[in-house]
């Protein structure tokens, strides 16, 4: 059965967290290289990329939608930053350009879905192609490299020994958690995803709040692209391919229903970490990359299968 979401962790997340811990325990037994401080920091740092994209995806999926364009927005915002920087803008201004472009793409998705009444799948599928195409056009298909160290510190910097991307990710999760649990935006997001018609009849501005979810997804994709550019010292028009699928996987492993209306960002964080730990562990174990794909896919399927089964049972019992 579903419990109130007000506590930081509730039944569903506890389950996912147990899965994560079990995975860690298993890797700890399997390889001496896993449970070192530097590796664990490394895992969290690597999870930050998908982790941040997945926060936006959580908002979108909570409203009952989907956003296939996040990966392309990552590429486009990065290229926008790169182009602006190449054109002579100071790096802070260039970053602002990148973030604005991401936000604009998200708002574009929102407008297509709410004003244009397109199904989210179609609208964002279109955006996925458009954004990727513009990224390739702007950059002539070439990566745009070379950024000042001050900007690259976004990815390489540390605060008290903690890599900056980790801090950024945790801060974003904290803000998202606050938004979802304590604000109008959050409550309306759940309400719209749970029952759009009843929400509209309660006087909620369904269009605005739905569009907000896509805008958040676009903005966070842009934030991710900043990290990515800083990390690789290069803005790539082909960056972020298939990020949408990794992000959806993290969200769903984290227990958010694809039907909308229930789920938490804490779950998503755990989901993103599960994916990160799994990849890291398989690398550490030296598993062949063919088998890695099988393993990752299987974990996604099993996690969601178990979750859906329980959910269906609870739901059937309640109706």
């Amino acid at each position: 059965m579903a419990l109130p979401r007000t506590k930081l962790l509730h039944g569903r997340e506890v389950g996912t967290l147990a899965g994560l811990l079990a995975l860690c325990a298993a890797l700890w037994v399997a390889t001496p290289h896993f449970a070192t401080v530097s590796n664990l920091v490394n895992v969290v740092e690597q999870s930050a990329i998908i982790g941040i994209v997945a926060v936006g995806m959580t908002f979108v999926i909570l409203t009952g939608g989907i956003d296939l364009s996040v990966g392309s927005i990552v590429a486009l915002s990065g290229v926008a930053l790169g182009t602006a920087h190449e054109a002579g803008l100071p790096i802070a201004a260039a970053a602002a350009v990148g973030l604005t472009v991401g936000l604009a793409c998200g708002l574009g998705n929102g407008a297509l879905i709410t004003l244009g009444r397109l199904p989210p799948f179609i609208a964002t599928l279109g955006m996925m192609s458009v954004a990727r195409g513009i990224a390739l056009m702007l950059s002539d298909g070439r990566p745009i490299s070379g950024y000042p160290a001050s900007f690259r510190a976004l990815a390489t910097g540390h605060v008290l020994g903690i890599p900056f991307p980790v801090i950024l990710m945790l801060a974003i999760y904290a803000v998202a958690h606050f938004l979802l649990t304590r604000t109008l935006l959050g409550r309306y997001t759940y309400a719209i995803g749970g029952n759009e018609e009843a929400s509209a009849l309660s006087g909620i501005n369904v269009r605005a709040y739905k569009a907000a979810a896509y805008a958040i997804a676009g903005l966070l994709s842009a934030v991710t692209s900043m990290l990515l550019v800083a990390r690789l010292n290069s803005a790539q028009p082909i960056a972020g391919i298939m990020y949408e699928l990794d992000a959806i996987a993290a969200v769903v492993i984290g227990g958010t229903s694809l039907l909308g209306g229930s789920g938490t960002v804490i779950g998503t964080l755990i989901g993103a970490l599960i994916m990160g730990v799994l990849r890291n562990g398989l690398n550490l174990l030296g598993v062949s990359s063919y088998l890695q794909q099988v393993a990752i896919g299987s974990v996604i399927i099993v996690a969601v299968l178990v979750d859906m089964m329980l959910r269906r049972r609870a739901r059937r019992a309640a109706e």
């Binding site: 304590r182 604000t183 109008l184 409550r187 759940y190 309400a191 009843a198 909620i204 209306g261």
Partner: peptide, 25 residues
């Protein structure tokens, strides 16, 4: 009703705006 939400959340749904400051409920 939004079936997944609690009784409290359902009851205040239409008036939530008036119970918030700067969007915080």
């Amino acid at each position: 009703l939004v079936l997944e939400l609690s009784i409290r959340e359902n009851i205040v749904l239409p008036v939530l705006g008036s119970m918030s400051r700067f969007g915080i409920v």
